Simulated assay, not measured.
Amino acid sequence: MRRFGKLIRLRPEHRAEYLRLHAEVWPEVLAMISACHLRNYSIFLEGDLLFSYAEYVGEDYAADMAKMAADPVTRRWWQLTDPCQEQTGGAVPGEWWTPMREVFHHD
């Protein structure tokens, strides 16, 4: 199992819309998250920063993320959520959310 923490900025003018969308996530989007072997997926909000946490339990992360990115329903979902966000200064080419480095973990 691999853990991922990622960060992105929430555009203040889209805060209410983003929160509304995530209060009613489409069942097909949730099913795709599970089908791509992500577990314990959470998004936290502090001020204007969104922090996501997920555990990956699959064998091929790149293939699973490509599968998710190719899903038509997920792509429509992202068309609604992406305008609510803006990348942070630490964004990495090819990644929408900024990957974070894990510095501590205890089971």
Rank of each mutant, 00 (worst) to 15 (best):
M1H: 14
A63K: 14
C84M: 04
N40A: 15
Q79A: 15
E46Q: 12
E17M: 08
A62V: 10
A16Y: 01
A70R: 13
G58Y: 01
R20L: 09
E59N: 10
H37V: 09
C36Q: 04
D107E: 15
Y56Q: 08
R3D: 13
R9Q: 14
L19P: 00
A31C: 10
R15M: 08
I43N: 01
G5F: 12
F4W: 06
G94E: 11
A62R: 12
V25D: 01
S52D: 09
D82C: 07
A91Q: 00
A31G: 09
W97A: 08
V103W: 08
S42L: 08
M100T: 10
P93Q: 09
R76S: 15
L50G: 00
H22K: 01
V29Y: 00
L49W: 08
T81V: 15
P27E: 07
P93H: 02
D60K: 07
L21G: 01
A70S: 14
A66Y: 00
L30V: 06
E55Q: 15
F104S: 11
S34W: 11
Q85P: 04
E28C: 02
H37F: 06
G47H: 08
Q85F: 02
E86N: 07
R75C: 11
D71L: 07
I8Q: 00
V25H: 00
A16L: 04
R15H: 07
D107K: 12
E95Y: 08
T88I: 06
H106Q: 13
V25I: 10
A62Y: 02
E46A: 13
Q85A: 06
F51M: 10
L45S: 11
E95S: 12
A63T: 14
N40S: 15
D71K: 04
G58H: 01
G58L: 07
W96D: 04
M100R: 06
R3K: 13
W77K: 00
A91T: 04
L49K: 09
E86S: 13
F51A: 07
M100I: 11
